[in-house]
Design a protein around this nucleic acid. Structure first.
Lengths: 227, 227
DNA sequence: TATTTTTAACTAGCATACAAGTTAGAAAAA
DNA sequence: TTTTTCTAACTTGTATGCTAGTTAAAAATA
């Protein structure tokens, strides 16, 4: 497990949650593996309590399954849960980009534009940075619409999707993702909800994961009920 | 605080979560009041640990706000959070009823129909029973679409809405709610997504809370940023 | 050898104790 | 009297120990 340093502003619980999440999404912790609270606590230099609380939160999205008196099972890659995460994200964000057309203020548009400029700058230079900017772009939409609670809920579920997202990112060109974002931005700027919806759905369609690819690449990690 | 008996199948944490939730939704615990973990733990005959964990979960939807070293603040009635809960629910369930048109199997339709028969039976007889059947009807839609994680997320947020729902229920006739449900059911049965969407949106429009009524009835409980 | 029983080493749920931060009021100083 | 300082009683965050349940391997039995 990769253990980054603790950010001074975060509590031990938040630190544990962040580290476990990152390791699950990066597949550093393998799907289907059992991890104990004590094991993680020792690795992070904490007691079991904050780690226990982090697992509780993770279990709410079924990304881990707490088996009482047995341990924490990191969920296998599950097509149903991925579909559910995708459904939630597309459904919510499609509605949001429409709303953003009337809610986005000048300053909001400037922030989106700044983000896009950075995306275009880092294109084919720094994939990690580009991914972070992508996430930030979507988060900005939630903020413009004053829907940050929804962002939290969608993010929690999205972990299932994030874990296999790299597979689609390889096939999809970054170039297209950034130009998609630009199209969404233009629609919001023009206050054209129909165009925003269309642009967003075109964008998300690129992430329609090919289950054949997933099951080939991650054969050993696929949950039984997905086969 | 009203303390129902502990269900034998639930853990202490689940029990604490259920009891606190019910008391917040019923306004038995007043919005804006501070409640301590020890206070609740004593009332439920538990230690602080499971109560602490229940509060952590509740804080994720901002229905309570944990102020470290100070206490747990039960959130004031907040128009932004109510709007967000409503947005999430309407957005997700509108998409679901469309999907349900192709996903509902014979057995699913029978379950919905049975539920509706009970709703019609209890109409103007038992308001509490009717409310439970209403919730069950919506939950069935999630189950038909295999979206139970979304149900959990939406439910958690809906607490903000549920807390003031009684105000709209008084003005809306139960008769209309049940006939709305029947219309949604008919559309799903006929596999007509457009009709299902229309029927559902008509249904939810009835719950477009009148902020004037809320602020009159719950004046003392309204959060500052809602005024 | 094959099967059952026992046991010892694990696990998470929970209770308890302590640490660290907040607050309200008493005591001291102006 | 008014202001400041201090203190004691709170709060949640976290560590630790105990309880009860699971598991797998050793030991006993067939």
């Amino acid at each position: 497990m990769i253990v980054p340093p603790k950010n001074s502003s975060e509590t031990n619980r938040e630190y544990a949650f962040r580290v476990i999440s990152e390791n699950i999404i990066s597949l550093e912790i393998e799907p289907g593996s059992m991890i104990g609270e004590q094991e993680i606590a020792t690795a992070l230099g904490l007691s079991r309590t904050p780690v226990h609380e982090a697992f509780l939160e993770l279990s709410k999205s079924k990304i881990v399954d707490i088996l009482p008196q047995k341990g924490c099972l990191v969920s296998m890659i599950d097509s149903d849960l991925i579909r559910e995460a995708r459904f939630l994200r597309i459904t919510v964000e499609t509605a949001l980009v429409e709303d953003a057309c009337e809610l986005a203020k000048e300053e909001d548009l400037r922030e989106l534009d700044d983000n896009l400029a950075l995306q275009e700058f880092y294109l084919s230079k720094d994939a990690d940075k580009l991914l972070a900017l992508d996430n930030e772009f979507h988060k900005l939409i939630y903020r413009i619409c004053n829907k940050m609670q929804c962002y939290y809920m969608v993010s929690l579920m999205s972990m299932h999707f994030d874990r296999v997202r790299s597979l689609s990112l390889h096939s999809v060109k970054d170039l297209k993702i950034v130009s998609d974002h630009r199209a969404i931005f233009d629609a919001i700027k023009k206050k054209d909800p129909a165009a925003a919806r269309a642009a967003f759905q075109k964008h998300m369609a690129r992430f329609d994961l090919d289950w054949n690819i997933i099951s080939r690449e991650y054969k050993q990690y696929i949950s039984d009920n997905s086969k």
